[in-house]
Nucleic acid binder design. Structure first.
Length: 485
RNA sequence: GACCCCAUCGUCUAGCCCGGUCUAGGACACUGGCCUUUCACGCCGGCAACGCGGGUUCGAAUCCCGCUGGGGUCACCA
């Protein structure tokens, strides 16, 4: 039997980190087993479902490279893949349940149910629907109908015994049947609800393995019972540990950035993000943590997924992002950073080749210290802007020179005459100058760096000078001379 | 509260199933040093964990029980 898994987001918000992890594990499992990754959209809540959220979820999945084999946009033999378009399928299955006596009409109004819940709360009892509508007399029903009350449909859950299911990650999960009540599978207007449609879709889409978050554990018996009533064998389940925030509660908006696309905007690389996500709850061995995508596919296995929740640590993600950035070829990195360069105005979309080369070279000089693509403009700023304000320490570095103006003027002259104007020659020049004037080479270097960039840090000074070019360097040295006269 | 699940450094984790090789390994963060024209990278070193209590056993991070702690779920949301 070929493996079929599904990721089933509700378009009621953006794809968040936890959802992305779930999608990734499903995708990896499918790819590993040469199976099929289905994307199903659970848009049965017309109030909260929005097209723009769907778009954003699809964008996020695409960014991560988690393309689906079946689903919106690509089709497939088990569609439609939007639940809102599967009404006929639900209707048919609902009829079967009704015909089989697995359901009953419930005339309780939402307010009444809420009152019952409230009562239970007050009495400190666990609330469970008491099944009162299961034994309505014909008169009662007639009366309700006369009142124009429209019934919802409830599914009869077993009254006693143990409800259990096998979970690839947790083993056998058992819950006493008394913990469950008869739940609503169709609203008065006929629209079906989650536990029913989810179960129906999973079997009608021939899903073999349900890999989802641990928060669905308690729903599972409801779904397996629906399936059983319909005459289907339940698929295999695997409930993933939850992703946690720093306070160890389930990761949510409270914890700041949780939308996947926000991470893209902040300058994370999809490869790094995926690699990092894969390591949340799954591990390969005691040491390895770098995995190219095909390696993840090759090694991924549900039996190396652990049961306890994992805190999403942005710091470690950031570190990992930096390591991936360092591995990028210079032009690859520049291409990734292009949007930030454009926004900073350094490299407009229609920039000429020279500018592009210059920017890419500047970026290459700073590549080793980048952790986020978004840092690019700040890092290369001195290559595009003259120093306006000096860092305090940079100014001090200049003042360590007895006569900064003199030094800068002298160096400007020498730069003017230097041939060739490359890093090697520049280094020689500066060291020779330091030697002649009896000043420490470090002192001169630091002062020049300050004069050129206003900073105490940056790339190797000699390479920076070479790339900036004679003209800019001479100009900035002269300006610095004025400034420190 | 009820039910379900979980429990190794601050964090991600290896080890647990098949007890000894674990004075518990790796990584992030933090930190000392080296390298060096700075920052960073890199390298070397350090700090830091088996939640507690009982068992079982010659021996327990590993098996069992209890406790504690944490999380999840208790909708005409998904």
């Amino acid at each position: 039997m070929t493996v079929r898994v599904r990721f089933a987001p509700a378009p009621t918000g953006n794809l968040h980190v936890g959802g992305a992890r779930t999608a990734l594990f499903n995708w990896l499992f499918a790819r590993h087993h040469d199976g099929t990754f289905v994307l199903r959209v659970e848009d049965t809540d017309p109030e909260r479902s929005k097209g723009e959220y769907l778009d954003s979820i699809l964008d996020a999945l695409a960014w991560l490279g988690l393309y689906w084999d079946e689903g919106p946009g690509v089709g497939g033999d088990y569609g439609p893949y939007m639940q809102s378009a599967r009404g006929d399928i639900y209707r048919e299955h609902l009829d079967r349940l009704v015909a089989g006596g697995y359901t009953y009409d419930c005339y309780c109004k939402p307010e009444e149910l809420e009152a019952q819940r409230e009562e239970a709360r007050a009495g400190k009892r666990a609330y469970r629907y008491d099944g009162r509508c299961a034994k309505l007399t014909d008169d009662r029903v007639a009366a309700y109908e006369a009142e124009d009350r429209r019934p919802s449909v409830r599914f009869r859950m077993p009254r006693d015994g143990i409800l259990s299911f096998d979970d690839l990650i947790r083993g056998t999960v058992e819950v006493p049947a008394e913990e469950y009540d008869d739940f609503i599978i169709a609203r008065p207007d006929g629209t079906p609800t989650y536990n029913f449609v989810c179960a129906v879709d999973d079997v009608t889409m021939a899903v073999t393995h349900i890999i989802r978050g641990e928060d669905h554990v308690s729903n599972t018996p409801k779904q397996t019972e629906v399936l059983r009533a319909l005459g289907y064998d339940p698929p295999t389940y695997a409930h993933l540990p939850l992703l946690l925030g720093p306070d160890r509660s389930r990761l949510s908006k409270r914890h700041g950035a949780t939308s996947v696309l926000e991470y893209q905007k902040e300058g994370f690389l999809a490869v790094a993000f995926v690699n990092f996500l894969a390591l949340l709850g799954w591990s390969y061995d005691d040491a390895r943590e770098y995995f190219a995508r095909d390696e993840l596919v090759k090694y991924f296995s549900l039996d190396r997924v652990k049961k306890s929740g994992a805190v999403f640590d942005v710091e470690k993600l950031t570190w990992m992002n930096g390591t991936y950035i360092r591995e990028l070829p210079a032009h690859g990195l520049f291409d990734k950073c292009r949007p930030w360069f454009a926004r900073a105005g350094y490299v407009p979309g229609d920039a000429d080749e020279g500018t592009v080369e210059y920017a890419a070279s500047a970026l290459a000089l700073e590549q080793e210290k980048m952790k986020l693509l978004s840092e690019a403009p700040e890092l290369v700023k001195p290559f595009f802007e003259e120093p306006d304000e000096y860092e305090e320490k940079a100014e001090k570095n200049v003042r360590k020179l007895e006569d900064p103006a003199q030094v800068f003027a002298e160096l400007a002259d020498r730069f003017d005459a230097l041939e060739p104007f490359d890093a090697g020659a520049i280094e020689e020049l500066i060291r020779a100058y330091a030697e002649e004037s009896g000043v420490g080479a470090g002192k001169v270097i630091h002062a020049v760096r300050a004069a050129l960039s206003g900073r105490t840090w940056g790339p190797s000074l000699f390479e920076m000078v070479e790339l900036l070019g004679r003209e800019r360097c001479v100009k900035r040295l002269n300006e610095a001379g004025e400034r420190f006269k």
